[in-house]
Design a binder for these strands. Structure first.
Lengths: 194, 194
DNA sequence: AAGAATGATTGACCTATGTTATGAAATTCT
DNA sequence: AGAATTTCATAACATAGGTCAATCATTCTT
């Protein structure tokens, strides 16, 4: 049941069998259908989730009803409204399933207790946080200095596995442009390539 | 000499006198003139810096020679090329002084050792990292869903202390627009207000 | 299989921002 | 103080991307 997440964490730290038991003891398992919500705006956010199977998106809906996607997640990724999770605030983001998904959740309060009992686990989550921070910084720089076409090409080469599974509509929302604009860019890119 | 940084850290954690001595023992002190570089692209990044006095900017220069500002820092802020610092890579960002500045630096290798000796200190830097992560997430969302005028107003209300001290040229680079565009926006905003 | 919903593309038109150039005002330097 | 530099504003024009509307293809539902 928890073999994927153990394998994932073992890439970064080593835990004893006792520590694994303590850790897996607090995990919860969740199965969601396509389009089902994991978190809705306004919810308290007690959990962060590891994706065993499936594909999800975390987004904010603006005053005009447009979705703006902060993060996608597929197998072996973590997802939550991390701001709300860390700060213990109500969710500002909505998270739902692009595909039927299977998740493993861990509660913030359990995590804090485990940080004390298993310092290595704190290390693991600090490394993950550092990586997330770095990728956000890259994304900010990319938004500041690249054209939409460059960002699109960057996206599909950085996340080819995700690109196959989500619509251009969602990719456009992630890139901060309209689907019509993405469609035009794709045509231009094709014309240049041929 | 280190009273500001002690006060700053004490807002988040408590350390014993011995722990303070151990901590301050590894710090270095740095004074820079206006326009002087703290970090240049390509440098190894061993230190992160706490700003005692002054004002700096961290930016990337693109292929066309345009600056794109990732971060400003004034008194009581931390600055570095954090990606390079965490990943022990060469700097991709350049950091220089908008005003003459006084900094306190801490080395990554010292920090890692101190994390082991003083777990509370690891907590402090984890909290700072979490805050930085959260503010980056906010900035990404802001870039995705707000107009330039909204982002400008947001910037000057969130950082009124910084806004006073830096040129519109730099604010434009931070917002991802050209100074001419910012100038137009400022006029439009003024016209509306009057 | 038929109908409905969703996704992708395209075109005409509009708006915000970039580009280039210029001059005035403010600041810094000596 | 006077010169040099930097900052800010403005204008004319170009371009990227948004908006609105229509069409077609694909996938989902029953």
């Amino acid at each position: 049941m928890y073999s994927e997440i153990e394998k994932h964490i073992s890439k970064y730290i080593k835990l004893s069998p006792d520590e694994w038991n303590r850790f897996t003891g607090v995990l919860i398992h969740k199965k969601l259908y396509k389009k089902q919500y994991l978190i809705q705006e306004g919810d308290p956010v007690e959990y962060e989730y590891y994706v065993v199977k499936g594909c999800l998106k975390a987004y904010h809906v603006d005053a005009d009803g447009n979705q703006h996607i902060v993060q996608f997640a597929i197998e072996d990724w973590w997802i939550s409204d991390f701001k709300a999770f860390f700060k213990e605030e109500k969710a500002r983001l909505t998270i739902d399933c692009i595909e039927a998904s299977e998740l493993i959740g861990i509660k913030k309060s359990d995590l804090e207790q485990l940080y004390i009992e298993i310092p290595n686990l704190e290390r693991f989550f600090r490394i993950k946080l550092t990586n997330a921070f770095v990728s956000f910084q890259d994304r900010i720089l990319s938004a500041l200095e690249k054209t939409s076409a460059q960002r699109y090409l960057e996206f599909i080469s950085t996340y080819p596995n995700i690109e196959q599974r989500i619509s251009n509509y969602h990719i456009a929302n992630y890139l901060g442009i309209k689907p019509e604009s993405l469609s035009r860019l794709r045509r231009q890119i094709l014309n240049i390539k041929q």
